[in-house]
Simulated scan of single mutants.
Amino acid sequence: MKTLMIYGAAGYTGRMTAGHAKAAGLNVIVAGRDAAELAKLALDLGVDHRVFALDDDATVDAALSGVSVLLNCAGPYIRTAEPLMRAAIRTGTHYLDIAAELDSYRLAEKLDAEAKAAGVMLLPGSGGSVAMLGCLAGHVAERVAEPRSIRIALHVSGSMSRGSAVSASENLTTETLARTNGTLQGRSPEDIRSFNFGKGPVDCFPVTLPDLITIWQATHVPDIETFVHVSGDAFPEGDLATLPDGPTEVQREANRYQAAVEVTGAGGSVARAILDTVNGYTFTSLAAAEAARRVLGGEVRPGFQTPAGLFGNGFAETIADTRIIDL
Protein backbone atom coordinates (compact mmCIF):
# COMPACT_ATOMS: atom_id res chain seq x y z
CA MET A 1 0.00 0.00 0.00
CA LYS A 2 1.38 3.44 -0.94
CA THR A 3 2.28 5.72 1.95
CA LEU A 4 1.50 9.38 2.67
CA MET A 5 3.80 11.35 4.96
CA ILE A 6 2.40 14.52 6.55
CA TYR A 7 5.24 16.77 7.67
CA GLY A 8 4.19 19.30 10.31
CA ALA A 9 1.46 16.94 11.45
CA ALA A 10 1.70 18.12 15.05
CA GLY A 11 0.57 21.64 14.09
CA TYR A 12 -3.00 22.88 14.13
CA THR A 13 -3.87 22.26 10.46
CA GLY A 14 -1.53 19.29 10.22
CA ARG A 15 -3.37 17.44 13.00
CA MET A 16 -6.72 18.04 11.34
CA THR A 17 -5.35 16.90 7.98
CA ALA A 18 -3.83 13.76 9.48
CA GLY A 19 -7.15 12.86 11.06
CA HIS A 20 -9.00 13.26 7.76
CA ALA A 21 -6.34 11.25 5.89
CA LYS A 22 -6.54 8.41 8.40
CA ALA A 23 -10.35 8.47 8.27
CA ALA A 24 -10.13 8.18 4.46
CA GLY A 25 -8.24 4.92 4.87
CA LEU A 26 -4.84 6.22 3.78
CA ASN A 27 -1.58 4.70 5.01
CA VAL A 28 -0.22 7.68 6.96
CA ILE A 29 3.08 8.53 8.60
CA VAL A 30 3.04 11.68 10.72
CA ALA A 31 6.32 13.59 10.81
CA GLY A 32 8.00 16.77 11.97
CA ARG A 33 10.35 18.01 14.67
CA ASP A 34 8.25 17.80 17.86
CA ALA A 35 8.95 14.27 19.10
CA ALA A 36 6.55 14.33 22.05
CA GLU A 37 3.58 15.73 20.16
CA LEU A 38 4.16 13.41 17.19
CA ALA A 39 4.33 10.35 19.43
CA LYS A 40 1.03 11.35 21.04
CA LEU A 41 -0.64 12.01 17.69
CA ALA A 42 0.65 8.76 16.22
CA LEU A 43 -0.72 6.84 19.21
CA ASP A 44 -4.10 8.57 18.93
CA LEU A 45 -4.38 7.79 15.20
CA GLY A 46 -2.73 4.38 15.27
CA VAL A 47 -0.05 5.34 12.72
CA ASP A 48 3.75 5.47 12.54
CA HIS A 49 5.74 8.64 13.11
CA ARG A 50 9.16 9.97 12.13
CA VAL A 51 11.04 12.83 13.76
CA PHE A 52 13.54 14.85 11.71
CA ALA A 53 14.66 18.42 11.01
CA LEU A 54 15.35 19.81 7.56
CA ASP A 55 18.94 21.03 7.89
CA ASP A 56 20.66 17.90 6.53
CA ASP A 57 19.83 16.52 3.07
CA ALA A 58 20.89 12.94 3.87
CA THR A 59 18.68 12.87 6.97
CA VAL A 60 15.67 14.16 5.06
CA ASP A 61 16.22 11.73 2.19
CA ALA A 62 16.45 8.80 4.61
CA ALA A 63 13.26 9.92 6.36
CA LEU A 64 11.39 9.83 3.03
CA SER A 65 12.28 6.18 2.46
CA GLY A 66 9.19 4.23 1.46
CA VAL A 67 7.07 7.37 1.12
CA SER A 68 5.09 7.87 -2.10
CA VAL A 69 3.53 11.28 -1.37
CA LEU A 70 4.77 14.02 0.95
CA LEU A 71 2.28 16.59 2.24
CA ASN A 72 3.99 19.56 3.86
CA CYS A 73 1.86 21.27 6.51
CA ALA A 74 4.79 22.93 8.29
CA GLY A 75 4.98 26.67 7.97
CA PRO A 76 6.54 29.12 7.60
CA TYR A 77 7.02 27.70 4.11
CA ILE A 78 9.86 30.09 3.43
CA ARG A 79 11.81 27.69 5.72
CA THR A 80 10.36 24.31 4.79
CA ALA A 81 9.27 24.34 1.14
CA GLU A 82 12.69 24.38 -0.49
CA PRO A 83 14.37 21.60 1.53
CA LEU A 84 11.31 19.38 1.18
CA MET A 85 10.69 20.09 -2.53
CA ARG A 86 14.34 19.37 -3.33
CA ALA A 87 14.27 16.21 -1.20
CA ALA A 88 11.11 15.08 -2.99
CA ILE A 89 12.82 15.48 -6.35
CA ARG A 90 15.93 13.61 -5.18
CA THR A 91 13.89 10.71 -3.76
CA GLY A 92 11.14 10.46 -6.38
CA THR A 93 8.40 11.50 -3.95
CA HIS A 94 5.42 13.59 -5.08
CA TYR A 95 5.21 16.85 -3.12
CA LEU A 96 2.06 18.62 -1.87
CA ASP A 97 1.64 21.49 0.57
CA ILE A 98 -0.90 24.02 1.84
CA ALA A 99 1.26 27.14 1.46
CA ALA A 100 -0.26 30.57 0.98
CA GLU A 101 3.04 32.39 0.37
CA LEU A 102 4.04 33.48 -3.11
CA ASP A 103 7.68 32.37 -2.73
CA SER A 104 6.69 28.68 -2.54
CA TYR A 105 5.02 28.91 -5.93
CA ARG A 106 7.90 30.79 -7.48
CA LEU A 107 10.13 27.99 -6.21
CA ALA A 108 7.86 25.36 -7.79
CA GLU A 109 8.11 27.25 -11.10
CA LYS A 110 11.89 27.30 -10.77
CA LEU A 111 12.07 23.56 -10.02
CA ASP A 112 9.53 22.55 -12.69
CA ALA A 113 12.07 21.17 -15.18
CA GLU A 114 13.98 19.23 -12.52
CA ALA A 115 10.76 17.75 -11.19
CA LYS A 116 9.63 16.70 -14.66
CA ALA A 117 12.97 15.05 -15.34
CA ALA A 118 12.62 13.11 -12.08
CA GLY A 119 8.98 12.18 -12.75
CA VAL A 120 7.95 14.05 -9.60
CA MET A 121 4.89 16.27 -9.18
CA LEU A 122 5.04 19.53 -7.22
CA LEU A 123 1.53 20.52 -6.08
CA PRO A 124 1.77 23.48 -3.69
CA GLY A 125 -1.57 24.78 -2.45
CA SER A 126 -3.25 21.37 -2.63
CA GLY A 127 -5.73 22.67 -0.05
CA GLY A 128 -6.81 26.13 1.06
CA SER A 129 -7.49 29.31 -0.83
CA VAL A 130 -5.41 28.29 -3.86
CA ALA A 131 -7.79 25.38 -4.49
CA MET A 132 -10.85 27.56 -3.80
CA LEU A 133 -9.89 30.50 -5.98
CA GLY A 134 -8.37 28.41 -8.76
CA CYS A 135 -11.53 26.35 -9.17
CA LEU A 136 -13.76 29.44 -9.04
CA ALA A 137 -11.67 31.35 -11.59
CA GLY A 138 -11.42 28.36 -13.93
CA HIS A 139 -15.14 27.65 -13.70
CA VAL A 140 -16.09 31.20 -14.70
CA ALA A 141 -13.35 31.55 -17.34
CA GLU A 142 -14.94 28.60 -19.16
CA ARG A 143 -18.12 30.70 -19.57
CA VAL A 144 -16.32 33.56 -21.34
CA ALA A 145 -15.13 33.66 -24.94
CA GLU A 146 -11.44 34.59 -25.01
CA PRO A 147 -11.08 35.56 -21.34
CA ARG A 148 -8.65 38.44 -20.94
CA SER A 149 -8.85 39.48 -17.29
CA ILE A 150 -9.72 37.95 -13.93
CA ARG A 151 -10.43 39.92 -10.78
CA ILE A 152 -10.89 37.64 -7.79
CA ALA A 153 -11.40 38.33 -4.09
CA LEU A 154 -11.35 36.17 -0.96
CA HIS A 155 -13.43 36.91 2.13
CA VAL A 156 -11.39 35.83 5.18
CA SER A 157 -13.53 35.44 8.28
CA GLY A 158 -12.69 34.48 11.85
CA SER A 159 -9.38 34.12 13.63
CA MET A 160 -6.03 32.73 12.48
CA SER A 161 -4.16 29.84 13.99
CA ARG A 162 -0.93 30.72 15.77
CA GLY A 163 1.10 29.01 13.05
CA SER A 164 -0.68 30.87 10.24
CA ALA A 165 -0.15 34.19 11.99
CA VAL A 166 3.59 33.52 12.37
CA SER A 167 3.85 32.45 8.72
CA ALA A 168 1.99 35.56 7.58
CA SER A 169 4.18 37.86 9.69
CA GLU A 170 7.36 36.37 8.22
CA ASN A 171 6.14 36.35 4.63
CA LEU A 172 4.47 39.71 4.13
CA THR A 173 5.24 40.74 0.55
CA THR A 174 6.21 44.40 0.64
CA GLU A 175 5.24 44.93 -3.00
CA THR A 176 1.64 44.67 -4.15
CA LEU A 177 1.59 42.75 -7.43
CA ALA A 178 -0.83 41.96 -10.23
CA ARG A 179 -0.37 40.03 -13.45
CA THR A 180 -0.50 42.29 -16.50
CA ASN A 181 -0.02 40.98 -20.04
CA GLY A 182 1.21 37.72 -18.56
CA THR A 183 3.89 39.14 -16.26
CA LEU A 184 3.92 40.06 -12.57
CA GLN A 185 4.09 43.82 -12.09
CA GLY A 186 3.76 46.26 -9.20
CA ARG A 187 0.46 47.99 -8.58
CA SER A 188 -0.96 50.54 -6.18
CA PRO A 189 -1.99 49.12 -2.79
CA GLU A 190 -4.64 51.84 -2.66
CA ASP A 191 -6.63 50.42 -5.58
CA ILE A 192 -9.66 49.35 -3.52
CA ARG A 193 -12.36 47.45 -5.43
CA SER A 194 -15.90 46.45 -4.50
CA PHE A 195 -17.03 42.81 -4.57
CA ASN A 196 -20.31 41.20 -3.56
CA PHE A 197 -19.91 37.93 -1.65
CA GLY A 198 -23.66 37.47 -1.40
CA LYS A 199 -24.69 40.08 1.17
CA GLY A 200 -24.07 43.31 -0.71
CA PRO A 201 -20.94 45.05 -2.01
CA VAL A 202 -17.94 45.42 0.32
CA ASP A 203 -14.54 47.02 -0.17
CA CYS A 204 -11.64 44.70 -0.87
CA PHE A 205 -7.98 45.69 -0.86
CA PRO A 206 -5.40 44.41 -3.36
CA VAL A 207 -2.96 41.80 -2.06
CA THR A 208 -0.25 39.63 -3.54
CA LEU A 209 -1.68 36.10 -3.47
CA PRO A 210 -0.11 32.94 -4.96
CA ASP A 211 -3.15 32.75 -7.24
CA LEU A 212 -1.35 35.29 -9.43
CA ILE A 213 0.83 32.31 -10.34
CA THR A 214 -1.56 29.37 -10.06
CA ILE A 215 -4.53 30.89 -11.93
CA TRP A 216 -2.15 31.98 -14.70
CA GLN A 217 -0.64 28.49 -14.76
CA ALA A 218 -4.07 26.87 -15.14
CA THR A 219 -5.87 29.37 -17.42
CA HIS A 220 -3.21 31.50 -19.18
CA VAL A 221 -5.51 34.52 -18.79
CA PRO A 222 -3.02 37.41 -19.13
CA ASP A 223 -4.43 39.93 -16.63
CA ILE A 224 -5.11 38.79 -13.05
CA GLU A 225 -5.79 40.83 -9.92
CA THR A 226 -6.25 39.41 -6.40
CA PHE A 227 -8.05 41.05 -3.47
CA VAL A 228 -9.03 40.28 0.13
CA HIS A 229 -11.85 41.39 2.41
CA VAL A 230 -11.23 40.74 6.11
CA SER A 231 -13.88 40.48 8.81
CA GLY A 232 -13.45 39.69 12.49
CA ASP A 233 -9.94 39.31 13.91
CA ALA A 234 -8.46 37.44 10.97
CA PHE A 235 -5.13 39.31 11.17
CA PRO A 236 -4.11 39.49 14.85
CA GLU A 237 -1.70 42.01 16.37
CA GLY A 238 0.61 41.88 19.38
CA ASP A 239 2.62 38.91 20.64
CA LEU A 240 1.74 36.07 18.27
CA ALA A 241 3.23 33.49 20.64
CA THR A 242 0.34 34.12 23.03
CA LEU A 243 -2.32 33.24 20.47
CA PRO A 244 -4.33 30.04 20.93
CA ASP A 245 -3.40 27.05 18.79
CA GLY A 246 -6.25 27.84 16.43
CA PRO A 247 -9.99 28.52 16.25
CA THR A 248 -12.28 26.05 17.99
CA GLU A 249 -14.75 23.92 16.07
CA VAL A 250 -17.55 26.27 17.14
CA GLN A 251 -15.57 29.27 15.90
CA ARG A 252 -14.85 27.59 12.58
CA GLU A 253 -18.52 26.73 12.08
CA ALA A 254 -19.48 30.35 12.77
CA ASN A 255 -17.05 31.76 10.18
CA ARG A 256 -17.52 30.51 6.65
CA TYR A 257 -15.36 31.70 3.76
CA GLN A 258 -16.51 33.17 0.46
CA ALA A 259 -14.86 34.23 -2.78
CA ALA A 260 -16.07 36.32 -5.70
CA VAL A 261 -14.75 36.57 -9.24
CA GLU A 262 -15.26 38.71 -12.32
CA VAL A 263 -13.95 37.48 -15.68
CA THR A 264 -13.90 39.79 -18.71
CA GLY A 265 -13.60 38.55 -22.29
CA ALA A 266 -11.82 40.11 -25.26
CA GLY A 267 -15.11 41.47 -26.57
CA GLY A 268 -16.07 43.05 -23.25
CA SER A 269 -18.41 40.30 -22.03
CA VAL A 270 -18.34 39.80 -18.27
CA ALA A 271 -19.21 36.76 -16.16
CA ARG A 272 -19.38 36.64 -12.37
CA ALA A 273 -19.77 33.99 -9.69
CA ILE A 274 -19.33 33.50 -5.97
CA LEU A 275 -18.06 30.54 -3.97
CA ASP A 276 -19.36 29.73 -0.51
CA THR A 277 -17.61 27.18 1.67
CA VAL A 278 -16.75 26.10 5.19
CA ASN A 279 -14.13 27.89 7.28
CA GLY A 280 -10.71 28.07 5.65
CA TYR A 281 -9.05 25.70 8.14
CA THR A 282 -11.77 23.12 7.73
CA PHE A 283 -11.60 23.38 3.93
CA THR A 284 -7.81 23.25 3.85
CA SER A 285 -7.49 20.10 5.94
CA LEU A 286 -10.25 18.29 4.04
CA ALA A 287 -8.98 19.37 0.61
CA ALA A 288 -5.35 18.52 1.36
CA ALA A 289 -6.31 15.03 2.55
CA GLU A 290 -8.50 14.51 -0.53
CA ALA A 291 -5.76 15.75 -2.86
CA ALA A 292 -3.30 13.34 -1.23
CA ARG A 293 -5.78 10.49 -1.63
CA ARG A 294 -6.17 11.23 -5.33
CA VAL A 295 -2.44 11.55 -5.91
CA LEU A 296 -1.82 8.25 -4.10
CA GLY A 297 -4.47 6.80 -6.41
CA GLY A 298 -2.48 7.77 -9.49
CA GLU A 299 -3.72 11.26 -10.44
CA VAL A 300 -0.27 12.61 -11.16
CA ARG A 301 1.45 14.85 -13.74
CA PRO A 302 5.17 15.49 -13.24
CA GLY A 303 6.32 19.06 -12.71
CA PHE A 304 4.61 22.07 -11.16
CA GLN A 305 0.83 21.61 -11.10
CA THR A 306 -2.17 23.39 -9.56
CA PRO A 307 -5.21 21.79 -7.89
CA ALA A 308 -7.67 23.12 -10.48
CA GLY A 309 -5.36 22.24 -13.36
CA LEU A 310 -4.78 18.70 -12.09
CA PHE A 311 -8.16 17.73 -10.65
CA GLY A 312 -10.43 20.02 -12.68
CA ASN A 313 -12.44 23.11 -11.82
CA GLY A 314 -14.98 21.01 -9.93
CA PHE A 315 -12.47 19.97 -7.26
CA ALA A 316 -13.47 22.61 -4.71
CA GLU A 317 -17.12 21.57 -4.87
CA THR A 318 -16.17 18.03 -3.78
CA ILE A 319 -15.04 19.43 -0.42
CA ALA A 320 -17.65 19.61 2.37
CA ASP A 321 -20.66 21.70 1.22
CA THR A 322 -18.71 24.06 -1.05
CA ARG A 323 -20.79 25.51 -3.87
CA ILE A 324 -20.20 27.87 -6.77
CA ILE A 325 -23.09 30.15 -7.71
CA ASP A 326 -23.12 31.72 -11.17
CA LEU A 327 -24.49 35.27 -11.22
Rank of each mutant, 00 (worst) to 15 (best):
residue 151 R to T: 09
residue 162 R to W: 03
residue 176 T to C: 07
residue 222 P to I: 01
residue 177 L to A: 06
residue 229 H to F: 08
residue 235 F to G: 05
residue 260 A to T: 01
residue 176 T to V: 14
residue 154 L to I: 12
residue 198 G to N: 06
residue 199 K to D: 11
residue 266 A to C: 02
residue 178 A to H: 13
residue 222 P to W: 07
residue 232 G to W: 04
residue 234 A to H: 15
residue 189 P to K: 00
residue 164 S to Y: 04
residue 238 G to A: 04
residue 256 R to I: 00
residue 165 A to P: 09
residue 229 H to N: 12
residue 236 P to G: 10
residue 266 A to Q: 07
residue 171 N to Q: 04
residue 264 T to V: 13
residue 223 D to R: 00
residue 150 I to F: 05
residue 154 L to V: 13
residue 230 V to I: 15
residue 262 E to P: 01
residue 153 A to I: 02
residue 198 G to C: 11
residue 201 P to G: 05
residue 147 P to E: 03
residue 158 G to P: 10
residue 199 K to T: 13
residue 173 T to I: 06
residue 156 V to L: 15
residue 215 I to N: 14
residue 161 S to N: 01
residue 202 V to Y: 02
residue 249 E to R: 15
residue 215 I to H: 10
residue 236 P to D: 15
residue 162 R to A: 05
residue 174 T to Q: 11
residue 230 V to R: 06
residue 174 T to A: 14
residue 198 G to W: 04
residue 176 T to S: 06
residue 189 P to A: 09
residue 166 V to P: 06
residue 195 F to V: 00
residue 187 R to L: 13
residue 183 T to M: 14
residue 213 I to H: 12
residue 236 P to Q: 11
residue 230 V to E: 11
residue 237 E to D: 12
residue 266 A to R: 11
residue 154 L to P: 03
residue 218 A to S: 14
residue 261 V to N: 07
residue 191 D to G: 03
residue 147 P to N: 06
residue 151 R to D: 12
residue 194 S to F: 02
residue 167 S to V: 09
residue 213 I to G: 08
residue 244 P to I: 03
residue 154 L to N: 14
residue 228 V to G: 04
residue 247 P to W: 13
residue 196 N to G: 06
residue 241 A to W: 05
residue 223 D to I: 00
residue 235 F to A: 14
residue 240 L to T: 05
residue 164 S to H: 15
residue 257 Y to K: 10
residue 242 T to N: 02
residue 222 P to N: 08
residue 183 T to H: 15
residue 234 A to I: 08
residue 244 P to A: 01
residue 219 T to L: 10
residue 191 D to M: 08
residue 220 H to S: 08
residue 215 I to P: 09
residue 165 A to S: 14
residue 197 F to R: 00
residue 185 Q to E: 15
residue 151 R to F: 01
residue 153 A to Y: 05
residue 208 T to H: 11
residue 223 D to S: 01
residue 157 S to P: 01
residue 211 D to G: 13
residue 206 P to N: 09
residue 149 S to W: 03
residue 205 F to S: 09
residue 248 T to C: 08
residue 156 V to P: 07
residue 166 V to S: 10
residue 175 E to V: 13
residue 236 P to Y: 08
residue 145 A to Q: 15
residue 207 V to Y: 09
residue 147 P to G: 05
residue 157 S to D: 13
residue 249 E to Q: 14
residue 230 V to W: 09
residue 156 V to Y: 12
residue 217 Q to I: 06
residue 248 T to W: 03
residue 192 I to P: 08
residue 189 P to F: 10
residue 260 A to D: 00
residue 258 Q to E: 12
residue 145 A to E: 09
residue 199 K to A: 14
residue 201 P to W: 04
residue 183 T to P: 10
